[in-house]
Design a protein around this nucleic acid. Structure first.
Lengths: 336, 336
DNA sequence: CTGAAAGCGCTTACAG
DNA sequence: CTGAAAGCGCTTACAG
């Protein structure tokens, strides 16, 4: 491939003149400019951005680490990030952590050596040890969706606490009293927040000490499956279930049939993150959806602001409200 | 950030010795190795891969351009690519072309200047002009899903022709005779192939000249909507519809209600790419699904083989069969 | 076993 | 308005 010197030679100028033409910087006479442009097109010259990246220590590149792009929620977040990056002239390295801190760290190290300017990460756990590594290298970072132990870090997330509260209130308003929450892992901040909202609504309604009604698990279909099996053993049997995410909801649906239970006649269901719609029962439950696209878009732009020199300003904790889709049939509870 | 010379200085060695320790190449005495490792950890040294990339002209980086990552089909393809890349030690630049040749070209140019080693692209149109650019720069490329005019290019794709044939046969076997195909754009090779399979099955069954039963459009919900409106005007009215992709199927479903038509009682439906399942009618149609993950994984590995020096071998055209999910209720046709 | 030199492609800072 | 020199961080190829 030709380099800037080949172009310069062909045009009979110095490399720096070619550079000035390419970047439209400094003064170049029309005549030289024409000769350079001719040489560029003759040689199919494509400037190599690795050079400038090395000099300027700016790659205009961002590392994006999500849990699993196969989950439509993250897909949508990624799309928001990508659109923001496109507009801002950044390129994305896409990485799937699969919720593993090991893979997360591995990717961060590789991305650091690739000289990304910053990171957009969905942390796998609240113990976010790679942060030290990132900050020591002086790289910017904005978290997506889940906060971590340290608060000294920018984040854009959904209002899980508020949504947990509203979903629970919704069920309470429909006269449900025995409400089980099938939750994600204790190490995920979103699960913790969702539980907090649940408890707040229950307490306000005068139902104290309902913590044992929260089943901690994973954000997976399997987990939802086993959590449901357990919840259905309780006496009195719950009249309503809260699924802390879409996969857990799938697990729930898989079980109910075996117990001869139907939604909403026998048991009500409300769901966080109503995105993957495997379920034919969609009209029968109320859902609270994260504004996924906006989350990605905002987080990316927050990062780009930082990279643009806005490092001094104070930390951001942007909390986006969920979108509610209330469907009539989430209740009321069945008569015994 | 410290560089290799800082480490060398601290360890009292030459930079090349540090390089040898990092890459575990050449001979280094245990003593020096220890001093170097100590210095690396003291300084939190992270090697800068831009240096080697510039020297070796290998970035171990791949440009991935898909139509829209928001479509679950492409999501799954991307996941396959990512897993393959992770294993092979490559990193991905993710780009959405939004089916626009303009954006496609823009991304390819940017990726070229970023010195990607190769490309994985879902071409927006059969006229794939950027190919010249890519090949002139001596970069490897493997197409995903859709072929283009030039055949001198590796590709991994689904067997659209075969799937079109089988879906049509399925309807014919159920005694359908008036079958409308709501297809994608004429510029998309997948749409062309799907139509080809349809015609082949119809011809074999003795129904010639059924080309006018193919409605060309876009792979979008809007297109499916208007195509359905048109198809329903025909006399005799079609007893079965073939949706050439998932979005078109959504458009179909939106219309049927207005006409008081129900699936499968009044009209049968078969669908390509049964991935986004907005539809509550899923149990009522037969679908042919692309092996999306495998497509991404295979395409990426094909590219890596090329990058590994396998450029000489002949062109690959890997055609993967669709997976069929035949649901009983796709037919038979209603009695008049 | 260890190291000094050169060069990958570019642009900043300086000189003319 | 134009250009020669130096340097971003690394490693190949050579010398000792």
């Amino acid at each position: 491939m030709p380099n800037i010197r080949d172009v310069a030679q062909r045009a009979g100028v110095a490399p720096i003149t070619v550079s000035r033409v390419i970047n439209d910087t400094g003064y170049v006479s029309d005549e030289l400019r024409q000769r350079v442009e001719q040489a560029i097109s003759d040689l199919n010259y494509v400037p190599n951005r690795l050079g400038p990246s090395m000099r300027s220590k700016r790659s205009h590149t961002v590392g994006l680490v999500v849990a699993d792009i196969t989950n439509p929620f993250w897909t949508t977040v990624v799309r928001g990030v990508e659109d923001a990056a496109y507009k801002a002239g950044y390129h994305l390295f896409l990485c799937n952590s699969d919720e593993s801190v090991y893979k997360e760290r591995e990717y961060v190290e590789l991305l650091l050596s690739r000289q990304v300017d910053g990171f957009l990460i969905v942390p796998a756990e609240t113990q976010f040890d790679v942060l030290e590594l990132i900050q020591k290298q002086g790289k910017a970072i904005v978290l997506l969706d889940r906060y971590v132990r340290t608060r000294s870090i920018d984040i854009v997330r959904g209002d899980s606490d508020g949504a947990g509260y509203l979903l629970t209130r919704h069920l309470l308003d429909l006269q449900h009293r025995d409400i089980a929450m099938l939750n994600g892992p204790r190490l995920a901040s979103t699960a913790v927040e969702r539980a907090k909202g649940y408890r707040r609504a229950m307490n306000e309604a005068g139902f104290l000490d309902r913590s044992e009604r929260i089943l901690w698990g994973e954000y997976t279909q399997e987990s939802g499956y086993y959590q449901t099996l357990e919840a259905l053993q309780w006496r009195p049997r719950p009249t309503a279930l809260i699924a802390a995410n879409n996969f857990i909801a799938l697990g729930i649906v898989r079980v109910l049939d075996n117990f001869g239970l139907r939604i909403p006649e026998d048991i009500s269901l409300v769901v966080f993150d109503d995105l993957p719609v495997e379920v034919n029962l969609r009209p029968f439950f109320t859902s609270a959806d994260q504004p996924a696209y906006e989350m990605g878009f905002l987080a990316a732009n927050t990062l780009f602001e930082r990279l643009g020199g806005d490092r001094s300003s104070e930390l951001k904790d942007i909390v986006l409200p969920f979108k509610f889709t209330v469907r009539s049939s989430s209740g009321p509870p069945p008569k015994p």
